[in-house]
Simulated scan of single mutants.
Amino acid sequence: MKEIIISQNEAGQRVNKFLLKYLNKAPSSFVYKMIRKKNIKLNNKKIEGNEYVYIGDTIQIYMSDETIANFREDVSGTHSTSSKKKIPVEIIYLDENILIADKPTGVLSQKASKDDYSFNEALIDYLLDSGHITTEELRTYRPSVCNRLDRNTSGLILCGVSLTGSQELSRIIREHLLHKYYYTLVRGRLTQKLDSTCYLQKDNAKNKVRISDHPWEQGKSEEIHSIFYPVKKNDDYTLVKVELITGKSHQIRAQLKHLGYPVVGDTKYGIPEVNRYFSDSYHVKHQLLHCGNIIFKETDGPLSYLSGKEYSAFLPEPFRTIEKDLFG
């Protein structure tokens, strides 16, 4: 008989979901059969399978160790010392539920293919190294990034350390209970706050989006909303603080181009001559776009302790040097 004690990282899910991850090589029909035959119990009681598990609950599996081992495959492996050194991890905040980190440019937030080593994997390795999670816990729950940043966008990224943390962060983002502020450098002089609502349409073939002031007559379009604040400016460039109200792919870059303020370094929506100057002068190879601040609004539930909390990440290089050179 095997007894499993539910940890913080595993609490908050239905017992059948937990079992299908724990016995990840077993057919679901086998797991439900074991539940019906009372070979699997929760807190020594018969279950239906739809009960929720909480911290400290115990699951009893009345099978031999050999049988259990045959129905389990180790999927916890992300520990790659050589890969880990390629992605620096700067932690801004960490507790038992959530992690906030500063993602560097040039790094995927999450895997795009099976063999990718993304920032998500780097964070998991950090949590393993620091003892916040164990390889055993990874069998039934893997910490996950909750807000994706484009590969070449840097800044604050949120990760659910526990299942509860992941569920609550996803809810907070979905219900717009989080202020997100980005910083970018644009070509053009923006002199006052600009509150803009537009419509975005994806072009999947080109991996780009189109922006219009009105819904597109053909194809699906999505309403987007951003607020742009000039922070520093000269005759040719503006450092802009962006409050992201909606969060669609390429939203900030494409919307600013539509409004006449293309982002410096942006190879998809920017100005080639401007990009060439900053590439030659500062070795800029990507858009200058950085998620610099997040503020949690008032919220209830397990993450209510984050209400009103603000977290920040400094501009990275060469963005910081460019800001100083342009605006003093």
Results as ranks from 00 to 15, higher is better:
109 S>L: 10
121 E>P: 03
121 E>F: 07
67 T>L: 13
89 V>N: 08
114 K>R: 04
124 I>V: 15
97 N>L: 07
128 L>A: 00
119 F>H: 07
102 D>K: 06
108 L>C: 06
125 D>R: 11
124 I>P: 08
92 I>R: 00
100 I>E: 06
73 E>S: 15
75 V>E: 06
106 G>C: 00
87 I>G: 03
75 V>D: 14
86 K>M: 09
96 E>M: 04
69 A>C: 08
105 T>M: 11
101 A>I: 09
86 K>P: 12
123 L>T: 07
102 D>M: 06
97 N>V: 04
121 E>I: 00
67 T>A: 15
80 S>R: 13
107 V>L: 09
95 D>Q: 12
120 N>C: 00
124 I>D: 05
122 A>P: 07
103 K>A: 07
76 S>G: 15
66 E>Q: 15
95 D>H: 02
101 A>E: 12
127 L>P: 05
79 H>S: 15
95 D>N: 06
96 E>I: 07
114 K>P: 06
64 S>F: 11
119 F>M: 11
94 L>R: 00
115 D>M: 03
100 I>R: 01
101 A>P: 10
114 K>Y: 07
111 K>E: 11
81 T>V: 13
116 D>I: 02
76 S>F: 07
87 I>R: 07
73 E>K: 15
73 E>R: 15
77 G>S: 14
84 K>F: 05
70 N>V: 04
108 L>T: 02
72 R>E: 06
90 E>F: 08
110 Q>V: 13
122 A>M: 01
77 G>D: 15
91 I>S: 13
123 L>E: 15
120 N>K: 08
115 D>V: 14
128 L>R: 03
111 K>P: 08
84 K>A: 08
101 A>V: 12
77 G>M: 07
104 P>S: 02
119 F>C: 10
94 L>P: 06
79 H>Y: 14
66 E>A: 13
111 K>W: 01
76 S>Y: 11
97 N>R: 01
120 N>G: 08
64 S>H: 04
94 L>A: 09
123 L>K: 13
122 A>W: 05
89 V>D: 01
68 I>V: 10
67 T>P: 11
96 E>H: 00
87 I>Y: 10
66 E>C: 02
108 L>G: 05
96 E>G: 02
90 E>M: 10
92 I>T: 10
74 D>F: 12
67 T>D: 15
96 E>N: 14
121 E>Y: 01
93 Y>C: 11
88 P>K: 14
98 I>M: 04
69 A>D: 15
89 V>A: 01
65 D>V: 00
125 D>Q: 09
80 S>A: 02
73 E>M: 02
94 L>V: 05
121 E>L: 12
87 I>P: 05
110 Q>M: 10
116 D>P: 03
97 N>Q: 11
77 G>Q: 14
116 D>G: 11
105 T>F: 12
112 A>M: 05
100 I>C: 09
116 D>S: 05
80 S>C: 09
79 H>A: 14
64 S>M: 08
93 Y>T: 14
68 I>T: 06
69 A>L: 04
127 L>D: 08
109 S>G: 09
92 I>K: 01
65 D>Q: 12
88 P>Q: 13
65 D>G: 06
94 L>G: 09
103 K>H: 02
100 I>W: 09
68 I>S: 04
111 K>R: 14
91 I>H: 04
64 S>I: 04
66 E>W: 01
119 F>V: 14
108 L>Y: 04
75 V>G: 02
88 P>H: 02
110 Q>H: 09
